[in-house]
Nucleic acid binder design. Structure first.
Length: 416
RNA sequence: GUGGAUGUAGCUCAGUUGGUUAGAGCGCUAGUUUGUGGCACUAGAGGCCGUGGGUUCGAGUCCCAUCUUCCACCCCA
């Protein structure tokens, strides 16, 4: 048996309808916020992610599916959505569209990671990006829309945390100050923290070791180092969020793992599951970095596998129902089959979910099958029915049977 | 990349100190007065016991390796 590659999942029929439900809900919400769908390639030139996501990030350094194609080009399966969308924005001159430009996407991502709870090598993200606004109002609108997702899906216990990581100028200042602070006692920190020092010193502030926690007392905080512009921006975001009644927590420890973020960053964390379901932020420098005009932008992405898992947990009672057939036409004999085939075709053309036997089962087995697939009604056709042009329609739930005329109109009238 | 657990029918799992043709429940297929589902009964199909080595007269059972799945670190959605 050939099995699927590590870290991949099949989404079977008994689950896919839940995905469709969530996707439809989210997409409707996005539409009302003025977002339109964008679809971009699964693979891109490797350089896009190296420059966009950042050469030093873990994602680029050790998690990308990269290979040379037969033409010798270095190709990478997208590990995230933003870089490709930004590339498409630049390449297709979308800057000339009325600003702001809002797009959403729903696509698979690929990261060579070790598999664990809520983490796969192929996973799916729905994301939303806005181009052409540097205003804090865009940050708030984006966070508001994200927040709505959990409301419309009836998912509680989600914590919104926000932070500002400043612009390149103030962040550099901060990192200098932080390193200076950490340097004094770096040999007393745990091993992981020591390895974090060069690459990602801000992570040390998030360490759970008691020893490191106490050493971190009095460490400088990014928020104290923000330049005036970044500071005002963040204050405005917080103020408006409060005004419109969205509760949040400021967590100076949030550092997104992708290099392109600036100013506002945010995460929606499931308290039950302990992982982040949705995350995003502003990336004012990315469009320029990838060769476009200097364009402010921001966005977020949510993990489908994670949100489906949580959705199921909280919606056991009022779970969406899978689509079930309205009618099953049971048949006996060849003539009945011909008629059933025609009826089924015509009813389907009218948009009705109707099933019939295509396995040459006995009448009894046909009824069994109709019951298993939860068909609401069963119409039985045999010689007599064809001759009399009347047939019995059975309500499978109540067991009631009534005789109706054997034509599409009368069938439609009797199956509500 | 590191550490820990796991692997027997489609699914959930039994399988006794290594011993003959590997079991159950559910599901699937068919039948139980030959034109009617759910309940009950009967029968059937379906397993190279994750894979590859080794120990042994003999391995689902013991040893080694490897892969998968799950969990944690790192990192992330």
């Amino acid at each position: 048996m050939i099995q699927k590659p590590k870290g991949t999942r099949d989404i079977l029929p008994d689950e896919s309808y839940k995905w469709q439900y969530i996707e439809a809900k989210v997409q409707e919400l996005f539409k009302n916020y003025g977002y339109k769908e964008i679809r971009v390639p699964v693979f891109e030139n490797t350089e896009l992610f190296q420059r966009g996501v950042g050469d030093t990030t873990d994602v680029v350094q050790k998690e990308m599916y990269t290979f040379d194609d037969k033409g010798g080009r270095s190709i990478t399966l997208r590990p995230e959505g933003t870089a490709g969308v930004v590339r498409a924005y630049i390449e297709n001159g979308m800057a000339s569209l009325p600003s702001p430009i809002k797009v959403w996407y729903n696509m698979a991502m690929y990261r060579y990671e070790n598999v664990q709870k809520g983490r796969l090598r192929e996973f799916h993200q729905i994301g939303a990006e806005v181009f052409g606004t540097s205003s804090y109002m865009a940050d708030v609108e984006s966070i508001t829309m994200a927040n709505e997702i959990f409301k419309i899906l009836n998912i509680p216990n989600i914590q919104l945390t926000i932070n500002s990581i400043g612009c390149p100028t103030c962040r550099a200042e901060y990192q200098k100050a932080l390193k200076k602070f950490l340097e004094k006692n770096i040999d007393q920190y745990c091993y992981t923290c020591q390895t974090r020092f060069e690459k990602n010193p801000m992570r040390i502030l998030d360490c759970k070791e008691e020893k490191c926690k106490s050493l971190n007392q009095g460490a400088p905080i990014i928020l104290d180092y923000l330049c005036d512009e970044c500071k005002t921006h963040f204050e405005n975001v917080k103020k408006l969020l409060t005004e419109i009644g969205i509760s949040y927590e400021v967590d100076p420890g949030i550092v997104r793992g992708l290099d392109y973020y600036t100013k506002t960053v945010f995460e929606f964390i499931s308290k039950e599951e302990g992982y982040t379901v949705l995350a995003g932020g502003r990336y004012d420098g990315l469009v320029k970095e990838l060769g476009g005009a200097d364009t402010p932008a921001l966005g977020f992405a949510l993990g489908m596998e994670r949100i489906v898992e949580i959705y199921e947990k909280y919606n056991k009672e009022n779970m969406v129902e899978p689509e079930i057939p309205k009618l099953y036409i049971a048949q006996i004999g060849e003539k009945a089959n011909s008629l059933a085939t025609i009826l089924v075709k015509e009813l389907r053309e009218k948009g009705i979910n109707v099933q019939k036997d295509i396995t040459e089962k006995s009448i009894k087995a046909q009824f069994k099958y109709a019951d298993k697939i939860n068909s609401k009604y069963v119409l039985t056709i045999g010689e007599d029915e064809i001759n009399n042009n009347r047939a019995k329609l059975k309500n499978m739930k109540t067991g009631e049977e009534k005789e109706i005329e054997l034509n599409v109109e009368d069938i439609l009238k009797n199956i509500d």
